[in-house]
Simulated assay, not measured.
Amino acid sequence: MDTKHISEMEAILDEANEILDTLEQNLNRLNDIQAKIQKLENYYTSKQWIDDFTADEQGLLPQDLKRGVLSEDGISSMLERNKDYMEKIIQR
């Protein structure tokens, strides 16, 4: 008896389960971080962010300071992606 198809289906089952397990973990993580994302959005729309952005533009921040949060595109893109994913989750 040829069992090649059983092995092929087993591989598909294993791959699907792995992806679904990872997806479930990441959906839980995404849900858990929503309060922190809201905190980041509040910062991004605050006077503090403007002050920090201005200080960076003036070269007043340490050169070795990681400052991706001062990139308008960085935060804006992440917030938009988060919104899109959360809407997709709610729609399902």
Rank of each mutant, 00 (worst) to 15 (best):
residue 1 M to Y: 07
residue 1 M to C: 09
residue 2 D to E: 10
residue 3 T to P: 06
residue 4 K to I: 09
residue 4 K to T: 12
residue 6 I to P: 04
residue 6 I to K: 09
residue 10 E to T: 08
residue 12 I to N: 07
residue 12 I to V: 13
residue 13 L to T: 08
residue 14 D to F: 08
residue 15 E to F: 04
residue 15 E to C: 03
residue 15 E to K: 06
residue 16 A to N: 14
residue 19 I to P: 01
residue 21 D to L: 13
residue 22 T to R: 06
residue 24 E to H: 13
residue 24 E to R: 12
residue 25 Q to C: 06
residue 25 Q to L: 07
residue 26 N to P: 03
residue 26 N to K: 15
residue 26 N to Q: 15
residue 28 N to R: 10
residue 29 R to K: 14
residue 29 R to Q: 12
residue 30 L to G: 05
residue 31 N to R: 06
residue 31 N to D: 14
residue 32 D to M: 06
residue 32 D to G: 09
residue 33 I to M: 15
residue 33 I to V: 12
residue 33 I to C: 07
residue 34 Q to I: 04
residue 35 A to F: 07
residue 36 K to S: 15
residue 37 I to V: 09
residue 37 I to E: 04
residue 38 Q to Y: 10
residue 38 Q to I: 12
residue 38 Q to S: 08
residue 39 K to G: 09
residue 40 L to T: 04
residue 40 L to I: 11
residue 41 E to A: 11
residue 41 E to S: 10
residue 42 N to R: 09
residue 42 N to C: 05
residue 43 Y to W: 02
residue 44 Y to P: 01
residue 44 Y to T: 03
residue 45 T to I: 05
residue 45 T to R: 14
residue 48 Q to E: 15
residue 48 Q to I: 13
residue 48 Q to R: 15
residue 50 I to K: 12
residue 50 I to M: 11
residue 50 I to Y: 12
residue 51 D to G: 05
residue 52 D to H: 03
residue 53 F to R: 11
residue 54 T to D: 05
residue 54 T to P: 01
residue 55 A to T: 03
residue 57 E to C: 11
residue 57 E to K: 15
residue 59 G to E: 00
residue 59 G to L: 01
residue 60 L to K: 13
residue 60 L to F: 05
residue 61 L to Q: 01
residue 61 L to M: 01
residue 61 L to S: 00
residue 62 P to Y: 00
residue 62 P to V: 00
residue 63 Q to T: 08
residue 64 D to M: 04
residue 64 D to Q: 04
residue 64 D to H: 06
residue 65 L to P: 02
residue 65 L to S: 04
residue 66 K to V: 07
residue 66 K to T: 08
residue 67 R to I: 00
residue 67 R to T: 01
residue 68 G to L: 02
residue 68 G to D: 03
residue 69 V to E: 15
residue 69 V to I: 15
residue 70 L to M: 00
residue 71 S to P: 00
residue 71 S to M: 00
residue 71 S to Q: 00
residue 72 E to T: 06
residue 73 D to R: 08
residue 73 D to Y: 10
residue 73 D to M: 09
residue 74 G to C: 07
residue 75 I to P: 00
residue 75 I to L: 09
residue 76 S to K: 14
residue 76 S to W: 10
residue 77 S to F: 12
residue 78 M to C: 04
residue 79 L to D: 01
residue 80 E to A: 13
residue 81 R to T: 11
residue 82 N to Y: 07
residue 82 N to L: 05
residue 83 K to L: 10
residue 84 D to L: 15
residue 86 M to T: 11
residue 86 M to N: 11
residue 86 M to G: 02
residue 87 E to I: 06
residue 88 K to C: 06
residue 88 K to N: 13
residue 89 I to N: 01
residue 92 R to W: 13
residue 92 R to Y: 15
